[in-house]
Design a protein around this nucleic acid. Structure first.
Lengths: 185, 185
DNA sequence: GCTGACATGTAACGTGTTACATGATTTT
DNA sequence: AAAATCATGTAACACGTTACATGTCAGC
């Protein structure tokens, strides 16, 4: 009944009340949060959540900025979110264009393809560095081992992000190296 | 103009001519091929590729089985595919429901959540074992270092798959362990 | 007056999933 | 006769992206 995006929004609202605009900004950058969405998807989804009484909102009037609707999760919303987290599910599919391209690498010019993979190795490597910097901050300040604190959720997601970016960038470098030294007919 | 699915189909047809049904079966299982699609998407896409003259088909009459349309990639199709492989692109987004759930783990019952993550650790671990068995076969038989052979494409994708499943299953085990030994308020 | 950040929506389009629909041939 | 596999399609719906559309307020 509630979409995955709905649960993503509930997950953010379970931490702190937000406006649609706030949620929209949080879902643009991949720092500790992978599921991205545009505001054009967020506003209608918030309306659906409100219709199901999983969130409520109050209009906050502002002098220095335009008025806004601040959404808060309800206890019914928290229950739905809590239940969803542990419900059995199928393994999600990996849908990555670069991997699909790799499948047809043998057709391409090794030099041009090598350039593409080096670029992506670099991009994922930078993302890795960024995540590792965030991890250092996290380890320093907060009680991330406390599994019932929101910080633990962020920590768990960040650890996956670090593993993913490390694995991905190494793979890109490896492909580039194969294209450089690989045998040709 | 051509969708990613279109290039996925061209990538398969560049290796050998196939019917829509053949392509459909190849795109159901994730062995060396990650981009999955249903036949309801494949048949219309083949029609679009044919309209652009990137593929052609001939009707093959069979006695023991129903007749079929066997599609072959054209040289224009091969050119389009080759060009696409090395064209600059943005980093693909990771859209994984379990990661999103991890973000709200702090709300869940540690026991139930631990069970979910152990189940997924197991599933990814099995996928890893399967990929590693395929790799052993690959290393034994064919010229996978030859970067202009189709086998190299399969090899490259398989290596990513192995790295991904290893990283993912280890992360699931780590999360489960955290939930077991983690501090609670 | 213009630009930029804040703020909230809708519409059109493309992609992907589920369900509907049909029919041949082989095996049980 | 029924079930399984082969074989090809369409339709309805859900999800996601891009573009359209409007309006406030602050700073230049």
């Amino acid at each position: 009944m509630t979409s995955i995006l709905g649960y993503a929004l509930l997950g953010l609202l379970a931490r702190e009340p937000c406006s649609g605009y706030d949620l929209s900004r949080k879902m643009q950058k991949p720092i500790s949060f992978f599921w991205r969405a545009r505001h054009s998807q967020i506003y209608p989804e918030l309306a659906k959540l409100e219709a199901q009484s999983l969130v409520t909102y109050t209009v906050v009037e502002q002098q220095d900025q335009p008025d806004k609707k601040v959404y808060t999760i309800t206890s019914a919303g928290e229950d739905a979110l809590r239940k969803w987290v542990s419900t059995p599910m199928d393994v999600s599919m990996l849908r990555d264009e670069l991997i699909l391209r790799a499948y047809s690498l043998w057709l391409a010019s090794p030099d041009e393809a090598r350039q593409l993979f080096l670029t992506h190795a670099q991009l994922h490597s930078e993302q890795l560095n960024m995540y590792e910097a965030v991890l250092q901050e996290m380890l320093a300040e907060s009680h991330i081992q406390q599994v019932d604190s929101p910080q633990f959720g962020s920590y768990a997601v960040l650890m996956l992000g670090i593993g993913y970016e490390r694995m991905y960038s190494e793979w890109c470098y490896w492909v580039a190296q194969q294209l450089e030294h690989g045998v040709t007919k």
